[in-house]
Design a binder for these strands. Structure first.
Length: 561
DNA sequence: GCCGTTTTCGGCCCGACTGTTTTCAGTCG
C-alpha cells in the first residue's frame, strides 16, 4: 500500500537528522527538514502526485521529489538505508535531548562509542563525558538530566495543562505580559510556553524563580524556567518595540524564517527588535505587529495562520482569506444534558446558551449501547424531544433536538432510523472497537457518512491528547466521502480532544466539506471551550461559510425539513 | 538540497545564552 504523507514526512525528517549527525551541509539538512514539514501538512496525498507535481511544491526539487516517489512505493528509500548503516540505530534519538545537538552526538559517538540512550547514561554516570575536550562537569550533569527527562517521556502538552501554567506565570510577572508562541497560534498541543513582557527583567526573574521548579537560564533579555515539568521562555521588551518581539516569539519558526527572507529581499533585516535597513543600518521599531507587516508590504497575518503554509505569499499579495470570527458563531453544536452523562438540565443548557448570546444549542446526548453510561434508547429520545419542545416555548436560546448516536463496529448506527427521524441534527461517533484496522475503520466511518440521517461525524479520529492515539482511519477517504455526501465533520472543541486537528480541517475546507464546531460540554463552564474549536477552524483556513455554527437557526433546521 | 524581475552559482534568518573558554562553539527558539 502507498505510504501516507505522514510516513513520507517521517522518512524525510529522519534523513535530515542522519545527515546532521554525519556533519553534512546544514542547508541540506534544513532542506530535508523543510520538505518533511511541507509534505506533512500538504492538503493532498503525495502518493497520487507525479514528479512534476511534486517539484512544484515549495522546498521540493528534483532530488527530494525522486525520494518521495521511492518512499511512496517502497515505504523507505535507499538514501535512508545507506545513512542508517553509517551509524548505530540509537543515535538519532539523542538529538531530542535538551542541550544535545548534532555536534555533541557526533563527539559522543566518535570519541566515547556512545550508540544510544543507555550508552550515554552509562558514560555520564561513569564521568567519561567530562574527559572530552570542550565538555565539563556541568555538561555531564545537563546530559544526565536530559536523559532522565527523555525517559519520563515529554510529549507536547494539552491546552488544559498549558493554560493554567501560563496563567500562573502571567500572575507572577510584575507588569504587563502577553502569551505568545504556539498557545497564541491556537495549536492543539503546546510544546513550551512563551511570554512577552514589559516588566523589568531583574524583578521578573526573581518573581519567576519563586513560582518555577527551576530556572534554566536567566539573562538580561530573557528568562527560561521549568514549571510543572514544562519549559517556559519569558522575553523582556519595551512598548516601542513590542510589535517585533511579539511577532518573533509567536512564530512559528518556519514563519519567522519566511518573514526574514521577505525582509531581506526588500533590503532589510528583521529580528525581534525591529527592521534594520541594510544600507543605512537604521533600526525601525514597532509598537504593533500590524505595523511590521505593513512595513514589509504585507497584510497582517492572523496568529493562527503563521505556519509557512502559503500564508506569507498571500499576505504579500494582500489576498489572505478572511477567517471565521468568534462573533459569527451563533451556537454550539454538541452539548450533553443530564438525559445522558451530562450534568446540565435542558433548562440549564438553554440558559448557558443564552448567556453566551447564542441563537441555538444542539442537545446531543448519547444513544444507548454498550459502553456508554445512561444513553438514550428510542423511546427515551422521543421523550427528550418533547421536553425540548417544552423548554423552547420560553427559552431565550433555542435547543435543537439532536443525538450523538454510536457508530457500532459494523458501521450501522446505535439507534434505528425511525428514532433519528425526529432529530434536527444527528451526530454519529465512534465510541467502541477503537482497535479496528484502517480499512475496516474507514469503511465503518464512511458507512455512517453515507447514512442520510447523519449530519455530522463526531470527533472523527477519536484521539484523546496524551491518552489515546487517533484511530487508524484514512482521513483522505473520509473527507472525500464527506464531500460527496454533504455530511459535516466535527471540530470537537473539548481541549482534551481537539479532533479534527488543523491539518485535516484544512484538507476538509479545501474539499468544500462543512465543519461543525461542538464543545462536547457536559457542564456549563465547558461551553466556553468553543474558542478552542474556533482557533482550530481558523488554523484550518476556514471562513464563515465553512462552519455550520455560523448559519441561522432557520438555515440549519431547514436543510432537514 | 533548493532557489532565482539583481543570480543556473552562490547564497541560504537571526539573536540569546551557557559552558568551557582566552575569543567562541553549540544549542535553542
Amino acid at each position: 500500500m502507498d505510504a501516507t504523507n505522514r510516513q513520507v514526512a517521517e522518512v524525510l525528517a529522519e534523513i535530515g537528522a542522519l545527515l546532521e549527525i554525519l556533519g553534512e551541509n546544514p542547508f541540506k539538512v534544513r532542506a530535508y527538514a523543510r520538505a518533511a514539514e511541507v509534505v506533512g501538512h500538504l492538503g493532498r496525498s503525495v502518493a497520487g502526485m507525479d514528479r512534476d507535481e511534486l517539484e512544484v511544491l515549495p522546498g521540493i526539487g528534483k532530488a527530494i521529489a525522486e525520494k518521495i516517489t521511492e518512499i511512496v512505493e517502497t515505504g523507505t528509500c535507499r538514501e535512508r538505508e545507506r545513512l542508517r548503516e553509517a551509524m548505530p540505530p540509537g543515535l538519532p534519538a539523542l538529538l531530542d535531548l535538551q542541550g544535545v545537538g548534532p555536534k555533541t552526538v557526533r563527539r559522543l559517538w566518535k570519541d566515547l562509542g556512545v550508540g544510544g540512550l543507555d550508552d550515554l547514561e552509562a558514560a555520564a554516570r561513569g564521568h567519561r563525558i567530562r574527559t572530552l575536550r570542550g565538555f565539563g562537569e556541568k555538561k555531564e550533569h545537563e546530559i544526565l538530566r536530559a536523559v532522565g527527562v527523555a525517559r519520563r517521556g515529554s510529549e507536547r502538552m494539552s491546552l488544559t495543562e498549558a493554560e493554567p501554567l501560563a496563567d500562573l506565570l502571567l500572575a507572577a510577572i510584575p507588569g504587563e505580559a502577553r502569551v505568545a508562541g504556539s498557545l497564541r497560534r491556537g495549536r492543539s498541543t503546546i510544546g513550551d510556553i512563551d511570554i512577552v513582557t514589559l516588566a523589568p527583567a531583574a524583578e521578573t526573574a526573581l518573581a519567576l524563580a519563586g513560582v518555577a521548579d527551576e530556572v534554566i537560564d536567566a539573562g538580561e533579555k530573557k528568562v527560561s524556567v521549568r514549571i510543572g515539568g514544562r519549559r517556559a521562555d519569558v522575553r523582556f521588551t519595551a512598548p516601542d518595540e513590542i510589535g517585533a518581539m511579539l511577532l518573533y516569539l509567536t512564530g512559528s519558526k518556519a514563519f519567522n524564517i519566511r518573514l526574514r527572507e521577505v525582509a531581506r529581499s526588500a533590503g532589510m533585516r528583521l529580528n525581534e527588535y525591529g527592521l534594520t535597513d541594510q544600507e543605512t543600518g537604521g533600526l525601525r521599531r514597532f509598537r504593533t505587529e500590524d505595523e511590521v507587516f505593513a512595513a514589509l508590504g504585507m497584510s497582517p497575518v492572523p496568529p493562527e495562520l503563521r505556519e509557512d503554509r502559503g500564508e506569507v505569499e498571500l499576505a504579500l499579495e494582500g489576498a489572505l482569506p478572511s477567517l471565521v470570527d468568534v462573533q459569527e458563531v451563533r451556537g454550539d453544536l454538541h452539548v450533553h444534558s443530564d438525559w445522558s452523562d451530562g450534568s446540565m438540565s435542558l433548562e440549564e443548557i438553554a440558559a448557558a446558551g443564552e448567556a453566551r448570546g447564542y441563537e441555538y444549542v444542539l442537545v446531543s446526548d448519547h444513544s444507548a449501547s454498550l459502553g456508554i453510561a445512561r444513553g438514550l434508547d428510542a423511546p427515551g429520545l422521543a421523550r427528550q424531544q418533547a421536553a425540548i419542545e417544552q423548554v423552547n416555548r420560553t427559552a431565550g436560546c433555542t435547543l435543537l433536538a439532536g443525538v450523538e448516536v454510536d457508530i457500532i463496529a459494523d458501521g450501522r448506527l446505535g439507534l434505528p432510523d425511525e428514532a433519528l427521524e425526529g432529530c434536527d441534527l444527528v451526530i454519529a461517533s465512534v465510541h467502541s472497537a477503537f482497535g479496528q484496522d484502517e480499512d475496516v475503520m474507514t469503511r465503518r466511518v464512511i458507512a455512517a457518512i453515507e447514512n442520510r440521517r447523519v449530519d455530522i461525524i463526531g470527533h472523527p479520529t477519536g484521539r484523546i491528547i496524551g491518552r489515546r492515539p487517533p484511530v487508524a482511519v484514512d482521513m483522505e477517504r473520509v473527507i472525500g466521502a464527506a464531500a460527496e455526501n454533504r455530511t459535516a465533520l466535527e471540530i470537537n472543541a473539548s481541549p482534551g480532544r481537539l479532533d479534527l486537528d488543523d491539518i485535516y480541517i484544512k484538507q476538509a475546507h479545501e474539499r468544500g466539506v462543512r465543519l461543525a464546531i461542538g464543545t462536547d460540554a457536559h457542564a456549563p463552564s465547558e461551553l466556553a471551550n468553543i474558542r478552542y474549536g474556533l482557533a482550530l477552524a481558523r488554523r484550518g483556513w476556514c471562513g464563515p461559510g465553512d462552519i455550520l455554527n455560523t448559519r441561522s437557526l432557520a438555515d440549519l433546521t431547514g436543510r432537514h425539513g
